[in-house]
Design a protein around this nucleic acid. Sequence first.
DNA 1: AGGGTTGTAAAGATCTTGAGAAGATCTGTC
DNA 2: GACAGATCTTCTCAAGATCTTTACAACCCT
Lengths: 254, 254
Amino acid sequence: MRIAIIDTDSGFLQVFGKRLERLGWEHRVLASEVPVDAIVAMRLSAVVIDLAVLGPHGWDYLEKLAAALPGLGIVVCTGQSTVAQRVRGLRSGADDWLTKPCHPEELIARVEAVARRRRRSDTRTVEGPVVAGEIEIRTDRFQAYVAGSSVDLTRREFELIELLASADGRVLEREEIYQRVWGYAMARGDRSVDVFVRKLRQKLEKASPGWRYIHTHFGVGYRFAPEAADGELPAEPPVANAPVGKPAAAPAAV
Amino acid sequence: MRIAIIDTDSGFLQVFGKRLERLGWEHRVLASEVPVDAIVAMRLSAVVIDLAVLGPHGWDYLEKLAAALPGLGIVVCTGQSTVAQRVRGLRSGADDWLTKPCHPEELIARVEAVARRRRRSDTRTVEGPVVAGEIEIRTDRFQAYVAGSSVDLTRREFELIELLASADGRVLEREEIYQRVWGYAMARGDRSVDVFVRKLRQKLEKASPGWRYIHTHFGVGYRFAPEAADGELPAEPPVANAPVGKPAAAPAAV
DNA sequence: AGGGTTGTAAAGATCTTGAGAAGATCTGTC
DNA sequence: GACAGATCTTCTCAAGATCTTTACAACCCT
């Protein structure tokens, strides 16, 4: 959840900001009017605006903002107001109007409610496809491709490779993998993860021979990292945290 | 605009009702709790609820309603309440919460704001005809054509193909399809989507043999992509998602 | 060398989908 | 208001995919 707050009321900002921190929402405070284009660039879920900060042309701004970003949630949180003002604000494109002083929890709940609606429209954030080695992982198709042709992964296989690939080179333990792909705790002695890693390796090997993608870390788990089979490492910068025990590729021989 | 009001406060109902008449909104007053299914059948844009009327299990009702009709606007308009209650209501699925006594104009503006947000999701903008493979989808006529002659799709069939085609190659899960075509949440075990996909395939096959349009993604859902049956792919760019609404490659074949 | 880990394979269980068709519902007409 | 036709739902069955489990071999580390 990414939101921006256009306000200058330091007390309000402090209380609200603290709450947002705790929720882990990315947020940004804007002390004054910001060009609509800039707001567009921020890719926000919602904005909280105190119309008083914007002065008389706040109405204008509201309309422009709403028109430019029909998917953006707009919550006006401002001081005392008349019914006519609130109606005007809502008609201008605001999704909600809250009067200060207000409880931060209520503001958050209202922002959530507004964003909930919004989310439904542009479901599934169109993320750029992830590319690793020769394979390309496309979340929007639940499938991986090599040179444009499908690797024919099943649902579980796809979710597994997606998880591994998104771990960005870290080693993932079986428990964690299971938990995140299957959605519940792994029973002791369950070998499902191993079995699926094998299936994945098989399919990847067939589709992209000459590359190794999934590496075993004995006694720990698996790590995803595209690696040309001939030992050519695709310029992997030595990240700060050296993985437990085995830093580089073990069989770096050759 | 069709709305329902679940309330018993005659004064409020009278004032508000009169205002609605003047606006020309279809509306219906429900004096007590009504089964969620009945609400579904009413095909509403929004409901206004006084939680006090429903008693202690109003929260439950709110949740059920919101879950069954994710697209329905829900505005709670009720007497004095605490912040905690409002937060709970909003989290349960209410889109807005207004405290009585309230000005009817504000209530209307809020219902409008909520409905506006809702409508945004099923954006039915008038776009030029979409062409995919041999078929042409004309939103303005609620019909698809091949070589100028109608494919004779029923309403649901049309809405389904329109949705799939507009997804631009993405895989859509059954839940999402159902939600967007039928307008409410899919019951577990409902096979309607499958049945309609079959009907669509049948009609498309008859009208445009030699092409495959709807592809099954086992365990996930369906994906729309015109594809000549002989394996000729109509030049589908491997990476980067093609811009929406671009028939593009379609006529390449033939 | 030995105990615990992992790779491999295959059988069996489970879940999904395609297909047909009966039943329910809607719509317009008489 | 009853009727006929179209449309939508729901149900069942069977084929097919996928997932889970089990067994055993190969492997790693101490």
